[in-house]
């Protein structure tokens, strides 16, 4: 259909404002930051900057950045793993074993924290994990004289807090995928002589893979870019790439280095999406 001038004008004026906005706030800024990552001086410095590859060079030259990156990726993997471990069975139970009003109510309860303030939820863990926190007091009341329980400012604290933040994503995506699987497929598998477990492994699991994959991406990507959560729950322990980028912009004011690190982070994100895209594609993309 060749749009007439009138419909063309309608399309333009309907989409124009939103996309102009996105251009000025997302796409041009990303380009600006890409350019900045190749400059040798921060725009805060009045002298004119020059082209350099030094910011990327610094990343590859120092073991320090490498270990930051490795920990960020490891953190992403751990959090994704635990979300899957906890979330998939919950999604399965909800989609296949609970029916009616209860399903609706529990589902709502699980996605409810989804949109509530992430910062506040991370903050709430400090109440639970610190010495004299709820966990500590509970342990002490049952086992008086047990060693003080203080997880705050540790690696596990960061992982627990992030799992708590992102678990609803995994449950949501897996639930949607599982719910779309027709029960008659399971019945067909059973009628062909497969055990429940085999049916699950050969039928349900592959069909819910898009949910698992998209849930993992939704979790992994923000986690490797996280800085607020490790700062509040990890303190000085377990510095992440995200924390370092934040410092380049707010403390040391080395914007070009921060920009280069941001694009390295972005490159990791793109690699992740490159890896998972075929999985989502193969299943018809209905996840």
């Amino acid at each position: 259909m060749t749009p007439t001038t009138r419909t063309r004008w309608a399309i333009f004026s309907l989409t124009g404002p939103a996309y102009l906005w996105l251009a000025c706030t997302i796409f041009l800024p990303l380009l600006a930051m890409l350019a900045l990552s190749f400059l040798d001086k921060s725009p805060l410095v009045p002298k004119p900057p020059e082209f350099t590859l030094g910011n990327y060079g610094a990343f590859f030259a120092k073991d320090f950045y490498w270990s930051l990156t490795r920990w960020s990726v490891e953190l992403g993997l751990w959090v994704t793993f635990f979300c899957l471990l906890i979330g998939y069975p919950a999604a399965y139970a909800l989609a296949k074993r609970i029916k009616g009003r209860w399903r609706e109510a529990i589902f709502l309860l699980i996605v409810l924290p989804f949109w509530s303030n992430a910062l506040v939820r991370i903050f709430s863990w400090t109440m639970v994990l610190r010495s004299n926190g709820i966990v500590d007091l509970t342990v002490q009341s049952f086992f008086p004289g047990a060693p003080a329980f203080d997880l705050l400012f540790s690696y596990p604290a960061v992982i627990i807090g992030l799992v708590h933040s992102y678990l609803p994503y995994m449950i949501l995506t897996c639930y949607i995928a599982l719910q779309a699987i027709d029960d008659s497929l399971v019945e067909a598998g059973r009628s062909l002589g497969a055990t429940s477990f085999t049916t699950f492994r050969r039928v349900v699991l592959p069909l819910s893979l898009p949910g698992i994959v998209s849930g993992s991406a939704l979790i992994f990507v923000p986690v490797i870019g996280s800085f607020m959560e490790p700062r509040i729950l990890g303190g000085t322990k377990g510095a992440t790439l995200g924390m370092n980028i934040e410092e380049q912009f707010t403390v040391t004011a080395n914007w070009p280095l921060g920009a280069a690190l941001s694009f390295i982070l972005l490159a990791i994100v793109l690699v992740i999406f490159g890896i998972i895209y075929p999985f989502l594609r193969r299943q018809g993309g209905n996840a």
Binding site: L22, T25, I26, F27, L28, P29, L30, A32, M33, L36, P43, A217, V221, P222, I224, G225, S226, F227, G242, I245, E246, F249, W255, G258, A259, S262, F263, L265, L266, V269, F273
Partner: peptide, 17 residues
């Protein structure tokens, strides 16, 4: 991109631009 790129990257990019 606005959803999939970490906010950290978007936020700092906005600051720069």
């Amino acid at each position: 991109p606005p959803i999939a790129i970490p906010w950290l990257v978007i936020g700092t990019a906005m600051l720069v631009f």
